[in-house]
Amino acid sequence: MALIQTEDLSVYYGRQRGVHGLNLSVEASEVYGFLGPNGAGKTTTLRVLMDIIRPTAGRASIFGLDCQREGVRIRQRIGYLPGELALFPNLRAETYFQMVNTIRGDPTSQGRVRTLCDRLGLDPTRPMGTYSHGNKQKVGLVAAFMGQPDLLILDEPTTSLDPLVQQTVLELVREARDDGRTVFFSSHVLSEVQAVCDRVGIIRAGQIIVTERVKDLLQRQFHRLRLRFANMPPAGAFESLGAQELQRTGDTLTIEIHENLNQVLALAVHYGILDLEDQPTTLEDTFLAYYGENKAGRHA
């Protein structure tokens, strides 16, 4: 049985859509990346799982327990990092950690708090109102990880962090998975999803449009090349190699290729290439390139 399961989950705020008919399944001991643009319904989904928002229709369960009826039992086993993290400004971080430990009845995690603070570079003795955005995010991360919960629900965990600390967070996620714990995190950053996720689901307009294994996706990743020529090749010159022309302006040609990179580059040299730029593609681009928006509901 899936660790996290939603069935036809819908949340509406008046006429405004949060999520609509969302079916999600996260297995135990995996890292599941939840990707989507702003307003797609990521945070709404996470808040339903935490019973902060109640579904309009459908149901959500974690550990086989209903998120609404048995929220307390569920939350006992979850570490949660909210997307819009707000902290008590007058409280010192160490006091906040003690408060969370007391609520959870876990006095043994003080040692882990120290280790986590050291790894993330956080001074927990200061009032939280004096912290930068990055340090506030670290407080949220320590609070989420310190109890070694069975499930971590992290909403954009690397937001506001510098690159080194982002790497530490990804290490923590990997360590959690290696310990047999499950991580469900929302993100819009391709590199971190590639780095740590086993599976990834794309949410768009309140619905999961596809779920895939990251390793399968990586094999399908494509290149979007911007080529500048001395002599512009004729239209369709690269089509025989499977490339698709996206744009042709002046001396510049933009193409998308999924295979035959060597042959495409050789042909470009033949036409007198002056400059080449490999434009970054997102995981969402990869998804949409393969499945398109109309091929919703595919799951791996």
Binding site: R47, M50, D51, I52, G71, V72, R73, R75, Q76, I78, Y80, P82, E84, L85, A86, L87, F88, V100, I103, R104
Partner: peptide, 14 residues
């Protein structure tokens, strides 16, 4: 309004 209630509501408290 400040957002701190979400922190408390995400703890195992009814």
């Amino acid at each position: 309004d400040d957002g701190t209630l979400e922190l408390l509501a995400s703890q195992p408290i009814p």
